[in-house]
Structures are given as structure tokens and as C-alpha cells.
Write a protein that binds this DNA or RNA. Structure first.
Lengths: 185, 185, 185, 185
DNA sequence: CATGAATGAGGCTTCATTCAT
DNA sequence: GATGAATGAAGCCTCATTCAT
């Protein structure tokens, strides 16, 4: 009985991701977003009451996907390699999470809540990775002479290695290999 | 009755670094900068004609320091470890360089020039790291079965591993060790 | 499954009154009105083509009631006291009329017309009060040494005396008494 | 050493008063204010960080004046009449105080503080009036058979009686006279 | 040089109103 | 009639930058 929607949440999320990747959080405005979506700026306010809510909702949504997929990692024969595969896919997400510190959490209670939930999910993600590493240590596959936290951080840091011009698989293979075997000849 | 506080470039750089580390580029304003320096906002314009020039000049200055220090790395017995040591010190710098994409290069010709010079210096940095890795490969210390670029990227990615509550030396030891020997038990 | 709630003009008026008394004209929006009514904002446009029409129609409606009741005042033995009784009841209305100056009369021809009619009715109200006062003067009950206009204004100003925690009757008694006898001991 | 000021606080206050009296709080914007002052809108933000701070500062300033002047009322032979004289002058102020309920006190801590201080000053004002009335009661000049609060409210309500086309003195005389002697012949 | 004043551009947000179903 | 979607106008505010002293 009302007009047909011209945009939906998915389109908003997609455009948001593109914009943030193009120009970072500082370059992310409802103005550019609305232009990208081809609607009026105020239209977006019918969906999100402010910038921060949109961005945090979006990031929560992404994070949820990775955390969920992390649960399937256990089932693989080489869980660390499976994790690296996930990594390659979510390089963008990682880049986007970097904007968190610059988000004004006081913008609205919902933003604050979203921020808290994200923090919890990131902890959860790290815990899952730790779990995987521990399990591999138990199986004797991973060294135990270095602090667990350091190992996890090193694994996580590889998300920065650019996939560049190779396929995700090649990237995963190489990085996993170097990560496991080390640089030495 | 010195009502007019005077400043110099070094003070500006120091305050700039602090501000960017505190709140990122989005939180870096001439307003807060002038407050930190205890001068009028307009005073800064006697030194820099715009925000972008200041920031890029500052980053160029920092980058120069690391690149210079990279030259001493060759002299160490274990150049990769020496590099990691540099890394631990320049974690902040790396964090700061991440803001580059968000800087409007068209702000002034000088900014554009600075940006170009930074790009060149970053290339140079990468080349130096590549040089170190190649030399180590030549000595038989580093594997050759993986693309050089990937190896360099992995080395560079470790700058993300947080130093956290350990000393720089401990960090260097651990990360270098895992990097060389791999995760495997 | 009546998904579409229907409304009528009376409900609109009631909700309007409540809202204006709660938060004044500045706080009166179709948004809050529709929420109070439990309908879509756009639904109200089936009844009123704009905010100003609604508000002026409503005030006209209220004003009409007082003016009509004023006609019964003559029948009382003490018409001034009867008027004060009316006053106590219409304190709210008075408060509401105060928003008139802030209404944009050019919003639509109907609004302009409503505003004019309200102005006329307010004149009429004042005339009626003047009539009552004159009649009382003729009967020798009210002093004649002060301009009629001033006396009327003073009577009308008492609408500002808050009823507070007393009954309307007590209020009427006290105010009428002081008004007639004066403050002096 | 800096440019000359083109506006000062007094001018801002004057323009504010004019605007609010012309079009009420709803019609009071920094836009219209800046136009009236002949400066850019943002210039006003160099003086007041938001609308509410300006308005409350201004009202506090006005209120302070009346409260101060109230202290001189005791010295007059007929303090009530002196008070009425003050009243005639501050009719505008009273009108302006009516906007208080529509001001968003959460706009900034300063606004909240201002609002509190205004509330206290209004209490103080009322107390002073009560003091005057009591003293007059003690001297046997004012009746005691009606609640003190009601008497005070009636006195205060006269601020609504328009001065219209008469001089302040005539107004004061008439209103004081009717207030004291009552309407009756 | 340093300053404080003024400014304009740009971004945020709300709300009355229109539109299509 | 009632609805939800979309919109534009209008107001808010911040900040880099320019200007005059």
C-alpha cells in the first residue's frame, strides 16, 4: 500500500563498504552514500538514524559472518590453513575494523551497544583462533616455546599481506607455508 | 609578560605525532594542535600553509629516519633480526602511514610532491628490505621457493604484531624466531 | 487484523491539545501527533493539508467554545465572578493561544482565513468582557475612574494566576475577591 | 594585534531580544541572528557554542538586572507601586521567560547550569516579592485573608497587562491603583 | 611572528510534505 | 482512507583558512 522501496539494507551495506574502502571513514558521509545509491540524503535517515549506527551495524554484520565461518575451521584437516583461507577473504573486513577507534560511540546508545558487541565478537574471534592454535599444539603440530598470544598475533598479522595479483589459493598456500615452516632455507 | 608564545617546527612535529597517535588522522585538527602547543590556531599558518602540508612533511621526516637507519642493518650479523628491531621501534610510524590514503593530495602542489616523495621512500624502504632478504638468500639463510615479494610482505606485516606488555627486545626475539623457524613444533 | 487504524477529527483535536500543552507549539509535530494517534504520519494529510491548518482549526474550535459560554455569563448574578469561573477552566486555552504569533499565516489561504477569524473572535471575546464590565459599571458595581480597556486587561491578565493545587472554585473565589476588593487590608 | 571586533556581546543580546520578541523562540535561529548582525553565521559560534547557551545567558543577564533592582524596592514608601514600575519595564523579559520550557537543557552542560541558575533566580525573585508583600502586611497595608501565594501570583500576573499607548507612569498608576483598591466602585 | 576575528565550505539531522500503492 | 517510502528545505555545527593588526 506504500510505494516500492528503491533501496534496501543490502544495497546500503554494499555501498558503505565500497565507500569506506575507497576513502576511509573520514571520507564516508551520508552525502556520498546517497549519491552512490541514487537517493536523497534524508532517505538514508529513514533506515539509520546516524552515520555511526549504520557503520557499526554493518561491521557487526560482517564480523558475524567471519566468526560464524571460524566455527567450520575445526573440521578441516589443517585448521590453520583453513583459517588463512578465511583470512584472504576477509582482508577487507580487517581493513575496515581499523576505523573503529575513530567512531564516536556516544552518537547514540545503539552505537555504544554495537561497539560493545563488536568488542566481544573480536574477543571471541581471537579466542577461537587461540583455541585452534592450542588444539594444534596439543596434537604436536605447533611449537610451544613462544607465548600463545604472540603466536596468535603473528597469525593475525598476516591479514596485512596483500593478496595482490595472485589467486586467493596461491596466497593461502604461500602464506601458510611460510608461516608454518619459517623463512629459513 | 610573554603573551605571545613562540614555537618551532620540532614542537609542531612532536605535537602532531602525539595527536595522530591519540586519535588518528580524523581526530587531527589544527584546533587541537594549537591547543596542545598553546598558541593561536592561525599561528600554525606561519609555518604551514595547510593541514596536509604539515602532515605530509611530518611523515616524510619520520620516514626519512627509518630509511636511513635501514642502511645500518647490513652491518649486523643477522640483518633480518636487526630489521625486526627497527620494526619494533617504528610500529607507531607504520600506524601513522596508514593515514596516507585519506590525505587530499590536491590540497597544494607541495602536498602532491610530498606524497610522491613518500611513495618513493616507501619503495626504497621495500627495496632495501628486498635487498636484505636477497642477500640472505644468497648466503643460503633464507628459502627461495616462495616469491620474494611474498616473503617481504610477510616480514613487513609483522609490524602489526603488538609489542604489548613486553620489552622491545623480547618482542624482537620472539617474532624473529617464529618468522624464521615457523610455527610448527 | 485491523492493520489500518482509522481516526476522526475529534481524536486529532484531543491529541493536538495534549501535545501542545505538553510541549508548546515548538514541540508540536506531525511526527509526535501521528505517534500519539497510532497512525502513519501521512494519514493526517487526509484530514489536514498542513500543520498550520490543523492547529488553527483546532484553536478556532476551542475559542468558539469559550465565546459561546461567555454568552451565559450575563445570566449570573455576579457576572464577573462567573467570568472568572470560565477563566479557570480555560487557562489551558489561553496558554495555547499564545502560540498564535508563531504560526506562519501564509502557509495556505485557509490558514490566513482561520487566523483572521480567530482575531475576530478574540475581539468578540474582549468586547463581551467589556460589555459585562460596562453593565456592571452601569449598575454601580465597578469603578469608572480608570480606563475601561485597562480594567478589562487586568481582568484578562488573571488567567495567568496558576490554579496550582487548589480547586477551580477556590481559585475563582480568591481571585475574584482580590480583584474586586483590592489588595489593601 | 588581531582584527577589530565587528560585534560584541551587547549587540548579540540586543539582536537576540528583538528576534525573540518578533518571532518567538521557534523563529530564533543563528541564521536570522547573523543576518541581523551583518556577520556570517559561523561568527556567532565564536561567541556561543550553541543557540541554547546564548539564549540562556541572555535571559540570565536580564533576570539578574530585575532581581538586582528588586532590592531597591524596599526603599520606596510604596514598595508595591515601585514593584509595578519595575514590572512595566520588564514586560518584555517576562514574555521572554515564557520560552524557557521549550529550551533543550541537554544542549550542553552550560545550558543546564544556566537553566538551574535561572530557576533559582526566579525563586529568589518570587521570594523578594513575597518579602515585600509580607512586610506590607505587617504594616497593615495589605490584607491577610487570602493565601500569600495567591496574592503574589496576582501581582505577578499584571505583567501581562499591556502598556499599550500609555506612558509607563500612567500604566503603573492605574494598575497599582486597581490592584490595591479593587475593581469595585 | 603571533594573534584573535571573521568567514565559507561542508557535513549532520529533523521534519513537513508528496507520492504511489 | 491508510500506508510506508522518498524527498527537500531548513536548521545545526565544526573546522580549515584568511584577514587585519
Amino acid at each position: 500500500m506504500a510505494r516500492h522501496k528503491t533501496i534496501d539494507q543490502l544495497q546500503i551495506f554494499t555501498a558503505t563498504e565500497e565507500l569506506i574502502l575507497e576513502s576511509g571513514y573520514a571520507g564516508f558521509h551520508f552525502k556520498s552514500l546517497s549519491e552512490k545509491l541514487g537517493v536523497a540524503r534524508s532517505t538514508i535517515y529513514n533506515y539509520y538514524t546516524n552515520k555511526e549506527e549504520l557503520v557499526t551495524d554493518f561491521m557487526l554484520h560482517m564480523l558475524q559472518q567471519v566468526v560464524t565461518k571460524m566455527d567450520t575451521v575445526h573440521e578441516h584437516e589443517e585448521p590453520i590453513r583453513a583459517m588463512m583461507g578465511l583470512w584472504a577473504k576477509y582482508a577487507n573486513m580487517h581493513q575496515m575494523l581499523q576505523i573503529m577507534p575513530y567512531i564516536d560511540r556516544k552518537a547514540s546508545p545503539k552505537v555504544e551497544q554495537n561497539a560493545k558487541r563488536m568488542f566481544i565478537m573480536l574477543e571471541e574471534l581471537r579466542n577461537k583462533i587461540e583455541g585452534v592454535v592450542k588444539e594444534e599444539q596439543r596434537k604436536g603440530n605447533i611449537r610451544q616455546d613462544v607465548q600463545l598470544g604472540t603466536l596468535v598475533s603473528i597469525i593475525m598479522s598476516t591479514v596485512q599481506v596483500p593478496v595482490a595479483n595472485r589467486s586467493e589459493d596461491e596466497w593461502t598456500n604461500d602464506v601458510f607455508n611460510v608461516l608454518m615452516q619459517g623463512l629459513k632455507a
